[in-house]
């Protein structure tokens, strides 16, 4: 039996899924921030005596191939992975938003040029862009963040542009212009407030993408410094030891998946909370 469906709109914090997702993000983020003060093992020092120990009381999530505590590395790794994600997102929004707003507002030849440049970036293979960025900047977590941020920026510009155009086509914008509002005034008073919701939702979606792909660069060995407990790099390190110590790669993967999942659920929640009627 087919039920007829009407989308519902629910405030963000009334959605149970969003609360669970937020809870997880707060847990991971909090642990990462507080890592130095938590009673954890050392995430970096190697030890010949405890190579690939299975999870048990001393090492809740086991040890990796160099005898390091997987739990300690996971918690510290949150700093690198989440930090990389936030910096990358900041860059994507910082570059994409102004371009999209300007392009959507000014229109004309500037719009064409900006959008063709966005096309140029999108047509450029993402992996090549990321690798080239890292090759130029040298390998570090910052380079990874810049690489994924740059890769995400064009899509953000596009979304910002279409959101802007949509708002500007609304009757009340015409009305505002008719009563003599300046372009700047229209932008600040009408456009920005109305594009915030969709752009926020899209930013959350992009954070998920950035986390996945940034960690992927580290997984490919293109990113972080040696021994850094970043989740993607941990996955790569543990991959050669699937037989003898699957926990060394399984747990970082789980942490990453749950975090990206939480971010994506949050994005859905934002969308649901701001869905136009």
């Amino acid at each position: 039996m087919i039920k007829w469906y009407k989308p519902r709109r629910r405030p963000l914090l009334r959605q149970p899924v969003v609360l669970v997702a937020l809870g997880w993000l707060v847990l991971v983020g909090g642990a990462a921030l507080l890592a130095p003060w938590l009673a954890l093992g050392d995430p970096v020092v190697v030890s010949a005596e405890r190579v690939l120990l299975s999870p048990k009381a001393d090492f809740l999530l086991g040890t990796d191939m160099l005898g390091r505590d997987v739990l300690a590395r996971l918690v510290w790794g949150g700093r690198w992975t989440l930090g990389m994600g936030l910096v990358g997102l900041g860059l994507a929004v910082g570059l994409g938003l102004p371009v999209g707003l300007v392009s959507g507002t000014v229109g004309g030849w500037l719009d064409v040029v900006l959008m063709r440049m966005v096309d140029g970036m999108l047509a450029f293979p993402g992996l090549l862009l990321a690798m080239a960025t890292i090759a130029v900047l040298g390998r570090s977590i910052i380079s990874v963040a810049v690489a994924v941020g740059l890769a995400a920026a064009p899509a953000y510009a596009r979304v910002a542009r279409s959101a802007t155009r949509e708002v500007r086509a609304q009757p009340y914008v015409d009305a505002a212009r008719a009563i003599g509002s300046t372009e700047g005034h229209v932008m600040v008073r009408h456009v920005l407030p109305n594009v915030t919701a969709p752009l926020l939702a899209f930013a959350a979606t992009q954070l998920g993408w950035i986390l996945l792909n940034g960690a992927a660069l580290n997984f490919l060995g293109l990113g972080v410094e040696l021994g850094t407990p970043e989740w993607g790099a941990m996955l790569a390190d543990g991959r050669g030891y699937l037989r003898d110590g699957p926990w060394a790669s399984a747990f970082p993967g789980l942490a990453l998946t749950l975090t990206v999942l939480a971010v994506n659920l949050l994005a859905d929640g934002v969308q649901e909370a701001t869905r136009p009627r």
Binding site: V45, V46, L226
Partner: peptide, 13 residues
């Protein structure tokens, strides 16, 4: 080499 490197870093630290 990465594993060797991490050992050296640890031993020299």
């Amino acid at each position: 080499m990465p594993e060797v490197g991490q050992w050296l870093i640890s031993q020299w630290a």
